[in-house]
């Protein structure tokens, strides 16, 4: 399976639409078997979901994702784990170990905002938090 991690220097990129690079990481089970870097500098945000799909990406790890980009990614069949912060390598390790769990966003009838989240339980993920609840 191939996952993409939007990066900013060595960290998770705070915004997918503004990220300049993604790591493309091939996993077999928990093992990383290959890693390449893909530049997004020449790809405008509306075209990024399709670009990732064309590279066979199944899951995207990133910081913030705009709603429009989130739905584009879903349309391309890419699972999104957003709201992450910190070192990209740490997030990759946490994902391989099954410690990052996607949660649905913007479901009809669901309330979003600070107050809607404050009551949630922590998942124990390293420094990950935000709209996906990975905190």
């Amino acid at each position: 399976m191939r996952i993409a991690i939007a990066t900013f220097q060595t960290q998770i990129s705070p915004r997918f639409d503004c990220a300049n690079t993604v790591w493309l990481v091939d996993l077999e089970g928990e093992n990383e078997v290959a890693r390449t870097e893909l530049s997004l500098m020449q790809t405008p945000p509306p075209a990024r979901a399709a670009l990732l799909r064309s590279h066979g990406v199944a899951v995207l790890l990133c910081g913030g994702v705009r709603r429009c980009d989130y739905f584009d990614l879903l349309d391309q069949g890419i699972e999104v784990i957003a709201g992450l912060m910190g070192e990209a390598q740490d997030m990759l390790t946490a994902y391989r170990q099954g410690r990052l769990n996607p949660e649905p966003r913007w479901e009809p009838g669901r309330r979003f905002g600070c107050n809607a989240r404050r009551g949630r339980h922590a998942h124990g993920a390293p420094r990950g938090r935000g709209p996906m609840g990975n905190r």
């Binding site: 900013f8 960290q11 990129s13 705070p14 915004r15 639409d17 503004c18 990220a19 300049n20 910081g63 913030g64 912060m85 910190g86 600070c114 404050r118 938090r129």
Partner: peptide
């Protein structure tokens, strides 16, 4: 919230369109 923001890099919680460039 303040508790979430304190100690974090500013670009992680104050996510402007120019932070990375």
């Amino acid at each position: 919230s303040r508790e979430e923001a304190l100690g974090r890099h500013c670009y992680e919680v104050f996510r402007t369109n120019v932070c990375q460039t």
